[in-house]
C-alpha cells in the first residue's frame, strides 16, 4: 500500500506574506487528517494548494491516480486536474453557496457530477441523485426544489451528496460545519462521520473547531503563521500538546 496523497515542501507566498511554508505529509487511504489553526494561519491556503485551486510556489502534491499511479498534480494539465476534481476528488465548501448551483434543483446539483463524467441516462442519474439525497437525509420529495429554499444545514447536506455521488477517494473540506447552528452541526458531523467510515474516504478537513476534529480526524496538523507547528494522532495532540501554540489553543476551548 502507498499513500493516497504525498505532499512535500509545499509553499505559497503572497508577496512578503507567507501563506504556507514547507508543508509535508502523507495521507493514507481511509485516513482523516484535520488541519487546525486560527484565521490567517494558512490552513485555507494549504487546502486550496492541495486541491489545485491555488498554484503553490514550490513543493509537490502527489496523488495516487487510479489509472497511472502516483502523479504530481501540479504537473497535470488543467483538463486532468478538473477531471480529478469531478471524479476522485471532492471539495466541500464552508458556504454551500460556493459549492452548489443555486439556480439548479437539488437533484440537478447532485446529478451534475454524474453528467460531467458522461452519464446520459436520465432515469439512472435521477435514481442516483435520489439515493444520495436520502443518504444525506434530504426528503426526496424535495429533490426538484432549488437549494435556495433549503435551510443552511440542508444546503450543506446537498453539497455533500453532490460531492460524494461519483465515489471520490479524497475529500477536501473547508470548515464544513462553519456557519451552522450547534444542533445542526452535530447532525452534520454525525452524518459525515458515518459516511467517511462507511465509504473509507480519505479526508483533509480544515477547521478551527477542535470538537470537530476530535470527532472526525484520525490525525491532526496544527498551523500557525503558515507553518506546521505540531502534528500527530488527534487525541495525542489535543490531550498532550507539545507546542506552546497548541497548548494555548487547547486550553482556550470553553467547556460547557
Amino acid at each position: 500500500m502507498i499513500p493516497l496523497l504525498q505532499v512535500t515542501g509545499l509553499s505559497k507566498r503572497y508577496g512578503a506574506h507567507v501563506g504556507c511554508a514547507d508543508v509535508a505529509f502523507d495521507l493514507w487511504p481511509g485516513e482523516v487528517m484535520g488541519i487546525v489553526g486560527e484565521s490567517g494561519s494558512g490552513k485555507s491556503t494549504l487546502l486550496n494548494c492541495l486541491a489545485g485551486h491555488l498554484a503553490p510556489d514550490a513543493g509537490q502534491v502527489i496523488f495516487d491516480t487510479r489509472e497511472q499511479g502516483p502523479r504530481d498534480t501540479r504537473a497535470m494539465t488543467e483538463a486532468e486536474r478538473r477531471w480529478l476534481a469531478r471524479t476522485d476528488w471532492a471539495y466541500v465548501h464552508q458556504n454551500p453557496r460556493d459549492g452548489l448551483r443555486m439556480g439548479v434543483s437539488a437533484g440537478g446539483n447532485v446529478g451534475e457530477r454524474l453528467m460531467a463524467v458522461g452519464a446520459r441516462h436520465y432515469g439512472d442519474i435521477r435514481g442516483q441523485a435520489q439515493d444520495w439525497l436520502s443518504r444525506v437525509e434530504i426528503d426526496t420529495g424535495r429533490m426538484d426544489d432549488r437549494p435556495g429554499t433549503f435551510s443552511g444545514g440542508m444546503q450543506q447536506r446537498v453539497q455533500i451528496a453532490r460531492n460524494l455521488v461519483t465515489g471520490p477517494r479524497l475529500v477536501f473540506m473547508d470548515e464544513p460545519t462553519g456557519g451552522l447552528d450547534v444542533s445542526v452541526q452535530a447532525r452534520l458531523l454525525d452524518l459525515l462521520r458515518g459516511l467517511v467510515r462507511r465509504l473509507g474516504l480519505s479526508v483533509v478537513i480544515v477547521t478551527h473547531d477542535l470538537a470537530v476534529v476530535r470527532l472526525l480526524a484520525d490525525r491532526l496538523m496544527v498551523m500557525k503563521d503558515g507553518h506546521v507547528v505540531e502534528e500527530g494522532l488527534t487525541d495525542q495532540v489535543l490531550d498532550d500538546p507539545q507546542h506552546g501554540y497548541t497548548q494555548l489553543l487547547v486550553s482556550s476551548v470553553l467547556h460547557v
Binding site: D235, Q236, L238
Partner: peptide
C-alpha cells in the same frame, strides 16, 4: 495508562 493508549507521548 494514557501513554500506553497513545494519547500521551
Amino acid at each position: 495508562m494514557r501513554m500506553i493508549w497513545g494519547n500521551y507521548r
